[in-house]
Design a protein around this nucleic acid. Sequence first.
DNA 1: TTCCTGACGCTTG
DNA 2: CCAAGCGCCAGGA
Length: 106
Amino acid sequence: MQNFDEVYQVVRLIPHGRATSYGAIANYLGSKGGARLVGWAMNAAHTKDDVPAHRVVNRNGVLTGKNFFETPDKMQQLLESEGITIEKDQIRDFDKVFWDPSVELG
DNA sequence: TTCCTGACGCTTG
DNA sequence: CCAAGCGCCAGGA
């Protein structure tokens, strides 16, 4: 879906070592479909390897979709590989690594 | 074709 | 402050 494509575009623009939330993307796209559809888009994006879905978490910074990866630890592993610290499946200092598309992209 | 569920988030009780 | 419900769109049965 085209809506999903926009989501992929935003997710792809997430800088290395940063993370954003489903709601932030939904908000940037004008709440199109809401945060849920962003997560759903990630599911479709799962087939695409160009979309770093591991950099997308919920507004709490929790790795809710980690279970959807090849391995539940894969998401955390990728994030830690980028310098992001994970504490109990949650990003530490999420406010610091948080990447708001509506702010960064304008 | 219709109903239900889903990687979420906000508002209300 | 904590818990529950509703709303968003799309896809599968």
